[in-house]
Computed example of a mutant assay.
Amino acid sequence: MTDAAKLDLPIRPRRVRRTPALRAAVRETQLSAGHLVQPLFVHGDDADTPLDALPGQTRWSLGGLVAQSGRCLGAGVDKVVVFPKIPEAEKTRRGEAAHDPAGLVPRAVAALKAAHPALCVITDVALDPYSSDGHDGVVDAGGEVDNDATVAVLVKQAVAHADAGADVVSPSDMMDGRVAAIRAGLDAAGHDRVAILAYSVKYASAFYGPFREALDSAPRAAPAGRIIPGDKATYQMDPANVREAQREAALDEAEGADLLMVKPAGPYLDVIRAVRERTRLPVAAYQVSGEYLMLEAAAATGHLDRRKAHLEALVGIRRAGADAILTYAATEAAGWL
């Protein structure tokens, strides 16, 4: 029982909510531009192409990517993660273009670091943008995603990105053992200072649709005579599981990850909290395309205040325990803050 209750005094928690200054003084969760990471899409075309699937987002040319990253920096967002749209003709079953040193991502990284040395450039390490099967890994003759064959390719991909100047490589494939292999590969190539942001907890979610449309990276229908998984549930996590998330995070931490990721964010706030309580590593969360699009769609119809809804969602992700948030609203949110 509180002292006020003992004295039969009225309890008035509202007193510290009365003014903006008082609310700011007792605010428990802080959100700043430094917590935000801006995902950016790039393609090899000369034109910048607005994305119908993600209002307000663009598939950038290399020049457009550099210019947009400068705008991010100007808003206080000093971290970007790059996702490539690869031409269909360059996609193969083993995704060889993923580790081409002259490929789209290495060229994009080099251009970004040359133009904006202070920018933290994060790259996505996975095969789905490069795979003719649309999977994050190599699909074998039996129709299974081959874990170990995939890991060997991911190591080459991570090293190619580091060679180009990436500050952080971010394996999003959910193959077993890939963090340890990538760490060993980076160190052997002289990149011991390049960090690994591991997608430790990536669910087989329905919220990725607009992203896959932006990259044309959805699983493909099986060609005649082959059977391949129609979704990614054989390697991404079951949305029903949280203990498994803790196990995956612990494994990646033991293998040498520098940061741990939970994806998606909004429907999995309990998972972010569970991971946060089990590790001392920084925890990131990805507010994915479907989450962003729901807010945008509701705001477009006038049912939500766009600014307030985005900021409330981001504060919720921070409150759950995320140290960094990947969000398509990053640059705008930084301006609002």
Rank of each mutant, 00 (worst) to 15 (best):
E88P: 09
S69E: 07
L9Y: 03
S170L: 02
S200M: 06
S172R: 00
T58N: 06
R318W: 00
V77D: 06
G143D: 04
G64K: 01
T2W: 06
E253I: 09
R319Y: 01
L314I: 13
V81I: 15
M1V: 14
E90H: 13
V81H: 04
G63C: 04
D187Q: 07
A180F: 00
L65H: 01
G209F: 04
L314M: 11
G142N: 12
R278E: 14
L73T: 10
A188S: 05
D3G: 15
G230Y: 03
D100Y: 01
L304Q: 08
V121A: 00
D128P: 08
S132L: 12
Y328C: 10
V201T: 05
G56H: 02
A160V: 06
A189E: 02
L36V: 08
V77T: 08
Q38K: 10
V242T: 13
N147F: 00
T331P: 09
G137K: 00
A102N: 14
I227L: 11
E28P: 10
A102V: 06
L154D: 05
D133F: 13
V194D: 03
E296Q: 11
S289R: 01
R280F: 13
P223C: 07
G302V: 03
A329C: 12
D305P: 02
A204N: 10
G74C: 09
T2C: 12
E255T: 07
R220I: 07
V105Y: 00
L337K: 04
D192R: 13
A166E: 03
E144S: 14
R212Y: 10
G137L: 00
H303K: 12
P87W: 13
R276N: 08
A162P: 01
A114K: 11
A218D: 13
E90N: 12
A180W: 01
Q246D: 12
A320S: 09
G142C: 07
P55M: 03
L40R: 05
G165T: 12
A233S: 15
R107V: 06
A224D: 15
G142T: 11
A221R: 11
A189D: 03
L186S: 00
V159A: 01
L119H: 08
G137E: 02
D124C: 07
V37K: 01
T234N: 13
R273D: 13
A300K: 11
V315A: 07
M261D: 09
A285I: 06
L269A: 06
D270P: 07
R12A: 12
H99G: 13
D100T: 01
L119V: 09
D133N: 14
R27V: 10
V81P: 04
E312A: 12
P13N: 10
E244K: 06
A334M: 06
